[in-house]
Amino acid sequence: MERAGPRLSRTLALWAALSPGLGLAQEAGPFATPLPQTLPSPSVTGPQLPAPTLEGEAPLSLTATLAGSDRPLRSGLAWRIYEDRTDAGRPAIVARSSAADPSFTLSPGSYVATVTYGFASASKRIVMAGAPVSDQVKVSAGALKLSGAIGEVRIPGAQLAFSVFVPIGTNSEGRLVRSGVKAGELVRLPEGTYHVVSTYGESNAIQRADLKVENGKVTDATLNHRAATVTLKLVAAPGAEAFAGTAFSVLTPGGDTIREAIGAFPAVTLAEGDYVLIARHDGQVFTREFKVESGLDRDIEVVARAS
Rank of each mutant, 00 (worst) to 15 (best):
L8F: 05
L8Q: 07
S9D: 06
S19N: 15
G21T: 10
L22V: 11
L22P: 01
A28Q: 03
A28Y: 00
L35H: 05
P36H: 11
S41T: 13
V44K: 06
T45I: 13
T45K: 09
Q48W: 09
P50S: 12
T53H: 10
E55V: 15
E57V: 14
E57K: 13
L60M: 12
L62P: 11
L62G: 11
A64C: 09
G68D: 11
S69L: 08
L73K: 04
A78K: 12
A78M: 10
R80G: 00
I81G: 00
I81D: 00
E83I: 06
R85S: 14
T86I: 07
A88L: 13
R90N: 10
A92M: 07
I93G: 03
V94G: 08
A95L: 09
S98L: 12
D101P: 06
F104I: 12
V115G: 01
T116F: 06
Y117M: 05
R125Q: 13
M128D: 03
A131R: 14
S134Q: 15
V139F: 06
G142M: 01
L144F: 01
I150E: 05
E152G: 05
R154S: 15
P156K: 02
F165C: 04
V166Y: 02
G169I: 01
G174D: 02
R175P: 00
L176W: 10
E185F: 04
V187M: 02
P190H: 01
E191R: 10
G192I: 06
G192R: 01
T193Y: 05
V197F: 06
V197L: 11
T199I: 05
Y200F: 15
G201M: 02
D220C: 07
L223K: 09
L223P: 10
N224P: 02
H225W: 09
T231L: 00
T231C: 01
K233T: 00
A236R: 14
F243C: 05
G254C: 03
D256A: 15
T257H: 06
P266H: 08
Y275F: 05
L277E: 00
L277M: 05
H281Y: 14
Q284M: 10
F286W: 10
T287C: 05
E289V: 07
V292G: 02
S294R: 02
R298L: 08
R298M: 12
R298H: 13
R298D: 10
V302P: 03
V303C: 09
R305L: 12
